[in-house]
Amino acid sequence: MNSIKNVKFEANDEDSEKASNSYLMSLVVVIVGLPLPIINLIATFVFFLSNRKENYFVRWHCTQALLSQLTLFFVNSYSIWWTLSIFFGGEKFSNNYFAYLFIALFFNIIELITTIYSAIQTRKGIHVEWWFFSSLTNLICKP
């Protein structure tokens, strides 16, 4: 889902700490809100709102974290909905269900690894661009 492209970017220590926190926080919230994907999205959105007046580097990374969480929210919500409908709605396990579940799991693992990598790199002040999400972020977040 994500590929990483490093781009040189100037940021001071506090900016890189805040940018790194946007990824770190989404990691912590994954642990807390594991059964409910909406919690990740709300937390990342609140963090984005609290940093909306910061400089471009911080805003950019908050937006990228938010967009990745938004995508995962749809993927995870659908898998939860499908699982619940199997257990409580009378639907049966099918190959399609397991295929979707493995894809969702794959997306989550890739997102987790990329998030950890981005948190480490942005803390060092290195600008990390993800495949697909960086282009979207560039459209939304203007300097």
Partner: peptide, 16 residues
């Protein structure tokens, strides 16, 4: 604590 969410967000933003 904002149903737990605000608390987590504040862990990362309270210093600033």
């Amino acid at each position: 604590g904002g149903f737990g969410i605000w608390t987590i967000v504040d862990w990362f933003s309270i210093q600033s």
